[in-house]
Write a protein that binds this DNA or RNA. Structure first.
Lengths: 197, 197
DNA sequence: ACCTGAACACCGTTCAAGT
DNA sequence: ACCTGAACACCGTTCAAGT
């Protein structure tokens, strides 16, 4: 209808993003299509940009997934309460489980990022610190925290790989967690009770 | 040098395989290139066959990986000894860990197959049976076996994703496993000792 | 700084056709 | 029965070039 030639004034400039925008969009896309569907090309398409443009913000898909994992952990963080060590570890495991469950394929994303050593916010380190603070020797603190992490990861990964998203199965998680904590109890300190206050 | 025309007698017939050949080759290829490098096209190339020929033996890559997992479990199976339930479960977990460690990315292969319900030889079912046989109620047997599996899977997956292939770290596995078994001990039966013989 | 355009070396899967 | 040939709709990544 209008003149077909020349001007085409503003707004034909390409979109412009920062790294955080890319990471946020990747998380949204993960929710839509899952880890398997989350491709660099699809993400670029979602942002209205060419695939090659993404490599200005992240070095590789692997690095992007690491950043996604860190952001998930950040968003899921809750205030640290000072409790008996068992309750403190239980809460840390529940927080971790909730963070994994909150995002599609969350367990797989967090575990692969951790295995590649991408995350700065390693939850295992936090749990090991709680054990060490409560009289476990460094070795036991390390292995105990790992064992808890492996349980949580295995539990959620199993459910998510089976396509079960929901929270029921909560009971199984609580029982499994109690089993591991009970096994820990006979090793850390002499007993697991706190007499403070 | 020879006459360029016609005959070219025998042996130009295409290769011919059975499903088991394809699965065996897939396991070999997995060892060479890992789960990430294991593609249908690469496998076809290894067999000297076109990619489309594979779909005569398996319905999809997913089904192939399920068959690979089953074969791994089969190869790793050891004789069942009758022992106290703790030793029996410990042995089952060690067997599972060894099977996972024996193959590159073995933990990931076995876990994804299990989650999709492909395997007929489910090790979790076996462990649950041991617990049920020893006085655990069905619920505890199920959750206890799952907890053990999640620990084993998480432990090996962690190591393999980090690119650590070797067996050392054995000590961590033994300690973690002892923690879980100890936690189980206070729940199954009243005590965990056998007075038979 | 952040983007486009074009290319390279790949994927899983389907389907008609050959023997 | 098991294979080829050809196609469809994709991948991650690199690199020169634009603004």
């Amino acid at each position: 209808m209008a003149s077909p030639s020349s001007p085409a004034p503003v707004s034909s400039a390409p979109a412009r993003y920062r790294r955080a925008d890319v990471v946020d969009r990747a998380i949204d896309l993960l929710e839509e299509v899952g880890l398997e569907g989350l491709s660099m090309r699809r993400l670029a398409g979602d942002l209205g940009v060419r695939p090659s443009a993404l490599y200005h913000h992240v070095a590789s898909k692997q690095e992007l997934l690491g950043a996604v994992a860190d952001e998930m952990l950040e968003r899921g963080r809750r205030a640290t309460e000072v409790l008996g060590w068992q309750d403190e570890l239980r809460l840390a495991c529940v927080e971790l489980r909730d963070t994994m469950l909150r995002h599609r394929d969350g367990a797989a994303v967090l575990a692969t990022a951790r295995a590649q050593g991408v995350g700065g916010t390693d939850p295992v380190t936090r749990m090991a610190a709680v054990l060490a603070f409560n009289g476990a020797d460094p070795e036991l603190a390390r292995v105990g925290a790992q064992t808890l992490f492996h349980f949580v990861f295995g539990h959620v990964a199993d459910r998510q790989a089976a396509g079960v998203a929901g929270e029921p199965g909560d009971a199984d998680f609580a029982v499994g967690l109690a089993i591991v904590l009970r096994g820990l109890e006979t090793r850390v300190g002499t007993h697991g009770d706190d007499r403070s206050s």
